[in-house]
């Protein structure tokens, strides 16, 4: 994978942390997944079964998952910006600090392409950081999917790739978990009139 493509993947993840509009964030995730899916298909050229698996994953991650989230966004209109959100620059600074720390501390684990390995770890960290620094439910779900894309990048760069059963099972699980997250997002909005999870404030000890 070229350096430009890797930076593009990271830029999409940073975009999810910064943007205010949920629809734009979903589009960024779709673009990130599309890029990874395209890379998988190019990599699998000539092998019909690998192409099929790559195609299913591309459809699942770049089309189905963003479509589910887009439906949730359409059903849950935010009348005004989420009050509890930090300033975008503060979010980005915090997320990048977390990601850089994790990339620096994480030892190499054997992928042939060191850049892809760092980017994979960075995407995972950025995904987790997204869930930490963003309050709306939809952004927390997006954070999870960005982290999963980091894992997918690592899997694509692994010698021989991951077994098809695991990759397909992972996409199935992602669809299930995203649908459940979507149901929660809709319910949270119904309950609070906003997707701001910080307003839920359940019982705490």
């Amino acid at each position: 994978m070229s350096e430009a493509a890797i930076w593009l993947l990271v830029a999409c993840a940073c975009g999810v942390i910064v943007v205010r509009r949920r629809r734009v964030a979903v589009a960024l995730l779709a673009a990130q997944s599309m890029l990874l899916g395209a890379f998988a298909i190019v990599d699998a050229a000539g092998e019909s079964s690998a192409l099929l698996v790559g195609g299913v994953i591309l459809a699942g991650k770049a089309i189905v998952l963003p479509a589910v989230l887009a439906v949730v966004v359409t059903r849950t209109r935010e009348a005004q910006p989420i009050a509890s959100e930090r300033h975008p620059l503060a979010r980005l600074t915090l997320a990048l600090a977390i990601a850089l720390a994790v990339v620096t501390l994480m030892p190499r684990f054997g992928l042939t392409d060191a850049r892809a390995e760092h980017a994979a770890v960075g995407l995972m960290a950025l995904g987790i950081a997204t869930a930490v620094v963003r309050r709306p439910a939809i952004f927390q779900a997006l954070g999870f999917l960005v982290a999963e894309n980091g894992l997918y990048l690592a899997a694509l760069s692994a010698p021989g790739g991951l077994p098809a059963v695991i990759e397909l099972g992972l996409v199935f699980d992602l669809v299930v978990v995203t649908c459940v997250a979507g149901a929660f997002g809709t319910k949270i909005h119904e309950e609070l009139g906003s997707g701001d999870t910080s307003l839920l404030g359940g019982a705490r000890d």
Partner: peptide
């Protein structure tokens, strides 16, 4: 509301935990 909060926290925290576990499997 407390149940929705509990279910959402359960979903988010355990899926992120399992993402880390999957990184280990990788």
């Amino acid at each position: 509301r407390a149940a929705i909060d509990a279910g959402w926290n359960y979903l988010v925290l355990t899926t992120f935990g399992l993402t880390i576990a999957f990184a280990g499997i990788l």
